[in-house]
Nucleic acid binder design. Sequence first.
RNA 1: GGUCCCUUCGUCUAAUGGUUAGGACUCAGCCCUUUCACGGCUGCAAUAGGGGUUCGAAUCCCCUAGGGAUCACCA
Length: 442
Amino acid sequence: MKVRFAPSPTGYLHIGNFRTALVNFLFARKNNGHFMLRIDDTDQERSFIEYENAIKEDLSWMNIGWDSLEKQSSRLSCYDNALQILLNKKRAYPCFETADELSLKRKSQLSSGKPPIYDRSSLKLSDSEIADLKSKGKKPHYRFLLNHIDVNWDDLVKGQSKYNMSNLSDPVILREDGRVIYTLASVVDDIDFAVTDILRGEDHMTNSAAQIQLFEALGSSSPRLGHLSLLTDISGEGLSKRLGSLSLKDLRQEGFQPMAISSLLSKVGTSDTIDIFKNINQIINDFDINKFGKSKPKFDKVELLNLNSKFFQLVKFDDISDQLNTLDIEITIEFWNLIKGNINTFNDIKFWWNIVYGKIKTINDDHEFTHLALKTLPNDSFDKNTWSTWTSLLMKESGRKGKDLFKPLRLCLTGQNNGPEMANLVLTMGRQKIVERLNNND
RNA sequence: GGUCCCUUCGUCUAAUGGUUAGGACUCAGCCCUUUCACGGCUGCAAUAGGGGUUCGAAUCCCCUAGGGAUCACCA
């Protein structure tokens, strides 16, 4: 069993693309199959190596490893062969309309209320007419001749599906400039690399119907097909329209963790509860393509943030120390255990580091109280009882208790309304820093 | 405009003709912690609308409304 993820290197991976990659990867791993990464770079005008590298980088960051890599740009001759086969079988035919003519035709069809389907006028051309046009220097593009019948398939996600092909234009498979079009290239690759299952977005539904006929015309049969419902943003709008801050690259910069992203994307839209997983193997174990529903799930960044926090609470110091080493500050296990319950994103680590070790703006609007706090602060070396010793004494001296006692201390020492356990914080912070903060009477 | 798909608490969904319509997240409240968070408990909250079929409909049928996808010499 073999699946593929086939991005075109025309932009950065966003949360929607990546979900398709992840589902393919999980499906393969769950079934001991092969996960192929295929770079669909036949559109030379829009494809860039920078994007290809970025896609690989993103996948690697997400711990999605591929078992093989192919690039369509290195397989162009295969596509020419396939076109010849189709031509011989009379399932492909040359067309001579210009792009402008076609676009004009579509517009007039649309404005007269008709579906903008290609009228097959080039199909009516005789061999001599074709030869004549070619001799005049006209270069043809080629279309695949569809059979106007119902195409049926049992979709891995959608169940029994059918599409009537008379609602579709014969797809262009080779451009006037000789470059292959995705519709054909994809099918040729899937045949040559023996792909058994295609999982992709439901935006490919009509492509799939046409491609099923293409598989058959090329003497093969269609792989199993599954069409995932497209992710939308929280208001129900498609993600692709405004993928601004939803690229993997941006999420990484914002401090989101791969496991939080994968945990969410492997479960959103399924009947399972969304929760954080510790590692990718757990996600694989729990994966089931049958649990994906037909309606469009919403991607909620708040939900992602919650999972992200949970990840930090769960992760062991040893398992994250490599990542912590990428920061230009030293993170001890003591510090990590102190703050791990209070961080939402990776970037919060540095935020707390500054609070504990660095310089911050604190909030101190009760100088009488902080003066008293300074006075009662134990002089001997700090231990785990220091906090309770200190606050007990301070309680007696100030007559305060509960929130009135603790909140000003927290604010003065950290500048924050909430944060780690004060007893631990004080211990990690040390006496000198505390004195400095209590004296910060501006 | 044609075609296809979708619609259950705010969110993700369960319930494939008989349930007090269940769970999870969020939210609210309480408990715990001499503060916040974590955790525990409790609670709020849904079958898009209208017609049928049936003893009985979230579930089957029809209509309406809303949303999405697609209809490229992009992928």
